[in-house]
């Protein structure tokens, strides 16, 4: 297992380098030098300050050296300072917004898992039945409705008309004066809508994948054998088939992380959640290159970590992998 882990970690390195290359390419995609923007934003920027900045970003050097320099800095989590007027270090800005994005995405993922697996399994058990058709349509509704629109409808219903849930943000007024339990409850209430929506949108992918994975397993010989042995159908499905059908879904877990992170741009904007997606959108609109690069890199690292976790899970569940 340890060698396997080590191997996987080793494999991540070239991917990581590749990701930084792409981020680096993006910053150089824009016309002009990245420091032009900063200089343009500050009419009083002196030539010396500009030179200093260009040196900092190594813009006076050939491009491959620039890349190496940049790589060295990000290895120390030094993504430079934001171009916005606050000039704060990019890592500080990302750091304060990272936990909430991870939290919401993890919770949404858990929710998806809890709902999608039973749906997928049960529709695979009765393929093409009315139940299968209804669930198919329902999960696709989640996928096909533009999320920001559905979000607004739910906000109107639960927030304005029924007053059951807060509309946006993370905390209520007077949050500081709540008890610890009250604080958790307050957070939970704020997270219900964004989480549910995110989960609803992701349901289709998982439940359909689960369904086809299950369909495949059910056709296998050992299931036929189990049935022939006279095992109860529920036991066949949930004990024998499910375990094997779940394996490929674990891989999907890792692969769906970039999609979830990308989706947080929309959620965080509509629900005023101060996460990474919101920061990224603001940075993109202001052409705050250091922040853009920082988030692209961090987002990719998150994905890699997610993939790794999924692989570990897979390895734990399937001994064949470990020994390979």
């Amino acid at each position: 297992m340890i060698t396997y882990l080590f191997k996987r970690l080793l494999e991540m390195i070239p991917t990581l380098v590749g990701i930084t290359l792409i981020s680096f390419f993006i910053i150089h995609l824009a016309p002009g030098k990245p420091t032009d923007v900063l200089a343009d934003l500050n009419p009083k920027m002196t030539p010396e300050a500009r030179e200093r900045l260009e040196k900092y970003y190594g813009l006076d050097k050939p491009i491959h050296i620039q890349y190496v320099l940049w790589l060295k800095r990000i290895a120390k989590l030094d993504f430079g300072d934001s171009f916005s007027t606050d000039r704060r270090p990019v890592w500080t800005k990302i750091k304060e917004r990272l936990p909430i994005t991870i939290l919401i995405n993890t919770l949404a993922l858990v929710l998806i898992f809890i709902i999608a697996i039973p749906i997928g399994v049960s529709s695979a058990v009765r393929p093409y039945s009315l139940y299968d058709k209804i669930t198919t349509v329902v999960v696709f509704i989640g996928f096909a409705i533009p999320t920001f629109w559905l979000a607004l409808l739910l906000m109107i219903l639960f927030g304005v008309n029924l007053h059951w849930l807060p509309i946006s943000g993370l905390k209520s007024m007077g949050y500081e004066n709540l008890s610890a339990l009250g604080k958790i409850w307050d957070w939970t209430q704020h997270l219900i809508l964004p989480m549910t929506l995110e989960a609803f949108g992701g349901l289709a992918g998982y439940s359909r994948y689960m369904r086809s994975s299950m369909l495949e397993v059910v056709r296998q010989d050992y299931i036929t054998t189990a049935r022939a042995k006279g095992l109860a159908e529920s036991k066949v499905i949930y004990k024998h088939a499910l375990r094997n059908a779940l394996l490929p879904v674990i891989t999907l877990l890792g692969m769906s992380i970039p999609g979830l992170i990308g989706g947080s741009v929309i959620f965080e904007n509509i629900f005023s959640i101060p996460g990474m997606g919101q920061l990224f959108y603001q940075a993109v609109m202001m052409r705050d290159y250091p922040v853009i690069m920082g988030i692209l890199t961090i987002g990719a690292v998150l994905t890699l970590v997610g993939n790794l976790l999924a692989d570990i899970g897979y390895a734990l569940a399937d001994p064949r992998i470990r020994t390979r």
Binding site: H163, I167, P274
Partner: peptide
């Protein structure tokens, strides 16, 4: 000073009295 980036959301917050 509450930051709400989406105008439609902000209006709903107003309506809800927040």
């Amino acid at each position: 000073y509450r930051i709400i980036p989406d105008p439609a959301t902000m209006f709903l917050e107003l309506k809800a009295g927040n």
